[in-house]
Amino acid sequence: MEIDRDHGRSPSQLRPLSCSRNVLHRAHGSASWSQGETKVLAAVYGPKAGTKKNENPEKACIEVIWKPKTGQIGKLEREYEMILKRTLQSICILTLNPNTTTSIIVQVVNDDGALLVCAINAACAALVDAGIPMKHLAVAICCCLAESGYVILDPTKLEELKMRGFAYLVFPNSVLSVLPEGSSLVEGEPMENGIITSVTHGVMSVEEYLKCLERGRAASAKLSDFLRRSLQSQLSNDSSKAA
């Protein structure tokens, strides 16, 4: 019982990814990230002096501004801003630059499904480009639950309409480590099995959620490899002169 997808994709196959950094001239860090037809541009400004009202001045503050493709920002975009902000707050080291604000501007270039995860991936790459201190990277993945209970990954806009449940999952990237195998486990599990953010929409049972989690985790390894490769290839271009 296979589920049919456009372009003959298998249920857990991601659309082609592409990432480029330092695309904007004036921003302190920027990145564009695309998954298939979905494309998001993220720009980072900062750290800038001072934090906003109601923020803890002993820590760095992260501000996310969502720019939709057209029109004004509504409730959904506000929710996205909030999710992005919370996610980025947990991967950045906030104590290093107290009383500063880092602004992340997310511009949607094209929305063809899995927009939020695309934005999270773009923002993460842009933060790396700006040199904001981070604990680790994050990779986001969108899992969908079809009527028949099948889990598919990275849906397009058309597929999203047919689904009954969504889970947006953000995982830490898989890290390279000098430590001997198994010593970096957190409570018996490797680091990259942790969850940074989990947002769900629609109805799904616990088993179905766990199934999403498992599929998402498997795909996150691929994503995190891609992120590392694309960061490294662009870094080596920058620093080839140092060699």
């Binding site: 790396v128 201190p133 981070m134 604990k135 680790h136 990277l137 830490p172 990237n173 890290v175 390279l176 480590s177 000098v178 430590l179 001997p180 970096s184 680091m191 992120l227 590392r228 960061l231 490294q232 870094l235 080596s236 620093s239």
Partner: peptide, 15 residues
């Protein structure tokens, strides 16, 4: 192992 290699945030480089 990692000296003169490109590293990304989160990598553990010295034990």
């Amino acid at each position: 192992t990692f000296v003169d290699h490109l590293v990304v945030p989160g990598d553990l480089v010295v034990d």
